[in-house]
Amino acid sequence: MQKDLPRPYQRHYLAVILLFSLVSTTGLMFWDSGTMEISTLTVNGTPGRIVFLADPHIRPNNLDQARGVVERINALHPSLVLIGGDFVYRSGDDLSLQEVWSEIDAPVYAVLGNHDYNAGIKGSGVEGKVACAMEEVLRLHDYNTSEFYSDTCDDAYADALEAVLEKNGVTVLRNEWVTVPAGGGNVTLVGVDDIWAGNAAVPGDVPGDFTIYMVHEPVETRYPDADLILSGHTHGGQFDILPLQLLNSVGLIRTGGLYWNGDIPVFITRGLGTSNFEHEYRLGATPEIVVIDPGTGVSGPAGIPATARDFLTGLVSIRAL
């Protein structure tokens, strides 16, 4: 007959299991943040290879990783490189670290993100996290969420960052468009300035070339003339655990991958860096470089599954009636 462990031993056994789980999970989060995945997105009409990345959050302890990203970008031989904002980690960062982008062997265009303006969601701690989640859900369903944004916006800091980026070969688009050569044709890039900073506006008279919209926060309902919309900001959820996966699968949030706004493809990258911790930690949301290649139709890593998307579209149609 088997004997039960004495209660003190049961507690010690449980403590060992919890400690092992904590150490293993922390190690896995550190490992995930240090790896790099290249995701391929094929889009009909793309005139040449384009590389897209976002959320580098450059600081001294991830600068070597950023240099490795630049090396991988150059090895891909893109016609064009696009960066979707959040270059910095927080106010007071050493902006000279942004020199890393000067090593890219292709034209580079970018938009700014909320960290680049020191702008965010009102509140801190649990209050801020809840407000952030509510803002994303409401924004994705076309509600005006400007009341959630903080009242502070450091335009001077953004201007200083833009000057450093321009000095290092990065052209920053702030509610403006430009047509540039890529591969065998032209691409019109439309850069929408940061939404959380309250600076977003859609420029007028965008020409009819293959048109890519870039906006840091993934808002995509305003751009009917786009052929492709690119966003970042979400970090892929950063900790892509089951609750986030479920919310993503039913369309309440969008953490990363390929989605659709009608017939317009929207790609939200998991980005490169993190912004919640002094060190890089991710779980199930590996840092990502996105390669956009010419192809037939549109294909790439999926966001909302088609069945869930169709179901939600049906619900919206019923509600509209």
Rank of each mutant, 00 (worst) to 15 (best):
319 R>C: 08
151 D>A: 10
312 L>A: 10
260 W>G: 00
163 A>S: 14
162 E>H: 03
288 E>K: 01
184 G>Q: 13
74 N>L: 06
206 V>D: 07
290 V>I: 04
297 G>S: 08
239 F>R: 02
149 Y>F: 14
206 V>I: 15
145 T>M: 04
150 S>F: 02
209 D>K: 05
194 D>T: 11
16 V>K: 11
169 G>D: 10
169 G>S: 07
103 E>Y: 10
243 P>S: 07
248 N>A: 13
20 F>I: 15
282 R>G: 04
119 A>S: 13
230 L>A: 06
6 P>K: 03
90 R>F: 12
302 A>L: 09
246 L>I: 15
30 F>S: 13
29 M>Q: 04
175 N>Q: 11
286 T>K: 10
4 D>L: 14
116 D>I: 04
247 L>H: 02
16 V>E: 09
145 T>C: 08
67 R>S: 09
26 T>S: 11
27 G>Q: 03
195 I>L: 15
194 D>W: 04
176 E>K: 06
149 Y>H: 11
181 P>T: 11
166 E>Q: 12
317 S>M: 12
319 R>Q: 11
95 L>R: 03
19 L>H: 05
19 L>F: 14
143 Y>S: 10
231 S>G: 01
88 V>P: 04
202 V>K: 08
212 I>C: 02
104 I>W: 09
265 P>T: 05
92 G>W: 07
111 V>T: 09
175 N>H: 10
104 I>A: 08
127 E>R: 14
77 H>W: 06
79 S>P: 08
28 L>H: 08
89 Y>H: 13
93 D>N: 11
164 V>I: 15
71 E>Q: 14
194 D>F: 03
99 E>T: 15
307 T>V: 14
187 V>I: 15
265 P>L: 01
130 V>N: 07
159 D>P: 00
197 A>D: 04
252 L>P: 08
205 D>R: 12
90 R>E: 15
118 N>K: 06
266 V>E: 04
119 A>W: 01
147 E>H: 11
204 G>S: 14
73 I>G: 03
76 L>V: 05
285 A>Q: 02
31 W>G: 00
216 H>M: 06
91 S>Y: 12
89 Y>T: 12
20 F>L: 15
111 V>A: 07
50 I>M: 09
94 D>G: 01
229 I>N: 01
316 V>Q: 13
71 E>V: 13
131 A>F: 10
282 R>P: 00
270 R>L: 03
23 V>T: 14
21 S>A: 15
46 T>F: 02
294 P>I: 09
128 G>S: 08
179 T>M: 09
47 P>D: 09
231 S>H: 05
37 E>G: 00
126 V>P: 06
8 P>W: 12
113 G>H: 03
137 V>T: 08
225 D>I: 06
206 V>W: 07
105 D>H: 13
320 A>G: 05
283 L>H: 06
192 V>K: 01
316 V>H: 13
104 I>Y: 10
12 H>N: 13
68 G>C: 03
85 G>S: 07
102 S>Y: 07
181 P>I: 10
124 S>D: 12
179 T>E: 12
63 L>N: 01
316 V>L: 14
129 K>V: 15
237 G>Y: 02
6 P>R: 05
7 R>S: 12
309 R>I: 00
10 Q>C: 13
171 T>H: 12
93 D>I: 06
68 G>L: 02
184 G>T: 14
302 A>T: 09
